[in-house]
């Protein structure tokens, strides 16, 4: 069982030092989790540390492949508002 960092990661380094298992490492094009080392924080913390500091919604997935921080959960921007704003910008 391990979490996974995907391409929306912005390489902010925040997760790397908070991981109790030293499972996160800097890589190109973005940070990665070593699935052999990730313990999902079991025994250390009740919540995933990486996903508790990561500022990017959707950048870290749980072992089911689901976003631990789904759209809107961190920024407070309702997803439909975001879609609207992006569509508006595209139209210009």
């Amino acid at each position: 069982m391990a979490v996974k960092i995907i391409e929306s990661c912005v390489n902010c380094f925040a997760c790397e030092p908070v991981c109790p298992s030293n499972a996160i490492y800097e890589a190109k094009p973005h940070f990665l989790v070593d699935p052999k080392k990730c313990t999902e924080c079991e025994g250390d913390f009740p919540v995933f540390q990486c996903a508790s500091i990561c500022p990017i919604e959707g950048a870290i997935l749980d072992s089911f492949g689901l976003a631990i921080n789904p759209p809107g959960s961190l920024t407070g921007i309702p997803p439909e508002k975001m879609a609207e704003a992006m569509a508006e910008l595209q139209a210009h």
């Binding site: 912005v10 390489n11 380094f13 925040a14 030092p17 500091i53 500022p55 990017i56 920024t75």
Partner: peptide, 14 residues
């Protein structure tokens, strides 16, 4: 200093 420990509504961490 890339990491941050809070989120501000005027900031986008990209």
């Amino acid at each position: 200093a890339p990491a941050c420990n809070i989120q501000c509504h005027y900031c986008n961490r990209k």
